[in-house]
Design a protein around this nucleic acid. Structure first.
Length: 223
DNA sequence: ATCCAGTTGA
DNA sequence: TCAACCGGAT
């Protein structure tokens, strides 16, 4: 951490440019299909991605990375396959809710016809899909312009002294979307870069040496 | 505020 | 060895 930023909190474009210059383009989401994005979004809830990859590999082995393939698994086997991603009983139930939702609504093709707002609201009806998971899906599976807020975003924005960092999910999301405009590509990269930055440097115990935002940062906020 | 849980790297 | 992990439901 630094001794404190000597200017106002950086805007989202600046954060995006700095992180991009440092980490390079990340081209998210690492998945082959929209369904895979959905499954990964559920499995990565409060869970390291490396553990999610093991679960996804186990599902792929069982040809369960399609709605029909996953629906063919017994609930016990589904839970067992995703075990490495943690919370496996809870998440198995959430994936089954997701499958039921896709069947009820006519699948991914049908959902693609919905307006972005309606698509988001529909996803939020699913048990186990909260704001972040819904927005992961809307942005990375359907390529719609919504910004995904997560714990890394809050932590970084707080340390940068940005407004709304401690506000509710919708407030923070709306503030970023208003700042950047409806820019799917920018939302995609900014969220991905914030996650990468959060993993590599901007941790709970930050590793500030060589941070690309070091000169604009107040460091760990205690209050 | 608590529970859900296996895995890993500082 | 243990905090932390791309949260959400109750």
């Amino acid at each position: 951490m630094t001794d404190g930023a000597d200017t106002a909190a950086p805007d989202c474009r600046t954060v995006l440019e700095r992180l991009h210059a440092h980490y390079g383009p990340l081209h998210w989401w690492p998945a082959e299909t929209a369904f895979e994005v959905m499954v990964g979004a559920v499995l990565t809830q409060n869970t390291a991605w490396s553990n999610v990859e093991r679960a996804l590999a186990a599902l792929r082995e069982a040809d369960a990375l399609t709605p029909a393939g996953m629906a063919a698994l017994e609930p016990e086997e589904l839970a067992e396959r995703i075990r490495p991603s943690g919370y496996y009983n809870v998440k198995a139930g959430r994936l089954r809710h997701l499958l039921a939702f896709l069947e009820r609504t006519g699948g991914i093709e049908a959902l693609s016809a919905l307006e972005t707002g309606a698509l988001r609201e529909a996803l939020l009806e699913v048990k186990g899909i909260g704001p972040e998971t819904a927005d992961d899906i809307v942005l990375y599976a359907f390529h719609r312009p919504v910004f995904v807020v997560d714990a890394y975003t809050r932590r970084l924005f707080e340390r940068l002294g940005r407004p709304h960092a401690r506000d509710g999910y919708e407030t923070l999301r709306a503030s970023v979307e208003a700042e950047l405009g409806a820019d799917t590509v920018a939302f995609n990269e900014l969220h991905a870069l914030i996650v990468e930055h959060g993993k590599q440097r901007c941790r709970p115990r930050p590793l500030c040496d060589g941070c690309p935002l070091g000169d604009r940062c107040y460091g760990v906020v205690t209050g």
